[in-house]
């Protein structure tokens, strides 16, 4: 197979040479192409459309990416705010503790109460409930009154700091809603407490 091919190649070159050196008649002009304007237009349109699509797609992609980024940022911001509000609410719910049979506020209780003020001042529509609780060592029945005194003591402090009295409800659950069961000072001390709950305006809290 290789042999004939090697012979034919120089021969073809020779024929081409002879042909070029002679004066052969000019070849007839190629027939003028028949121009189909429609198809050109269509092609152009298609190209333009494709280009346009590509451009639009890329714009859309960029836009989508920008929007997604914005969305993410917004969500993150909202999440951060939610977290901040949740943290503020949680901080607001920090309980205060009392000594046995006592309802006077200890220094650390006053510090915790002071920390609740900014939220109350930044959200004038917020109403709260303070619930007083006791351990189970005092009189079972009279403990409701002791819990009431504990709740009232915290309310009095907040009112003295300028919070309107009608924004604060006080209730007592005596020894009936303990957080720590059993006896021993470790449990008792956890039960002698005031709890704080936002009962109105907690959905749209403004951070201080």
């Amino acid at each position: 197979m290789n042999y004939p091919t090697r012979l034919l190649a120089p021969l073809a070159l020779a024929v081409a040479f002879v042909a070029a050196c002679g004066s052969p008649p000019p070849p007839p002009p190629p027939p003028a192409p028949v121009i189909n304007q429609d198809s050109i237009d269509a092609a152009a349109r298609a190209r333009a459309a494709a280009a346009e699509r590509a451009r639009a797609d890329s714009v859309a992609r960029a836009e989508a990416a920008r929007r997604a980024a914005e969305e993410r940022a917004r969500a993150e911001a909202a999440e951060r705010e939610r977290a901040a509000i949740a943290a503020a609410r949680a901080a607001f719910a920090t309980v205060i503790y009392f000594d046995l049979d006592k309802s006077d506020l200890k220094p650390e209780a006053r510090t915790i109460l002071m920390a609740k003020l900014p939220l109350l001042r930044a959200n004038m529509n917020v109403r709260i409930r303070i619930a007083g609780h006791t351990d189970d060592r005092g009189s079972d029945a009279y403990n409701v009154a002791l819990g009431q005194r504990r709740a009232a003591a915290a309310k009095r402090f907040l009112v003295d700091q300028g919070i309107a009295a009608d924004r604060i409800d006080v209730v007592s659950f005596g020894e009936d809603r303990p957080v720590a069961m059993g006896s021993g000072e470790e449990n008792w001390s956890k039960n002698r407490r005031d709890e704080f709950e936002i009962i109105v305006g907690g959905e749209n809290l403004r951070l201080p």
């Binding site: 029945a141 009154a145 009431q148 005194r149 009232a152 309310k155 409800d169 006080v170 007592s172």
Partner: peptide, 24 residues
């Protein structure tokens, strides 16, 4: 607030209970 410890008078006409927000 707190409303607690009801008791009846011996003639049955009066109820006494403890109530209050600040004191009781």
């Amino acid at each position: 607030g707190t409303n607690m410890s009801p008791a009846f008078s011996p003639d049955g006409k009066t109820m006494v209970y403890a109530s209050g927000e600040d004191g009781v």
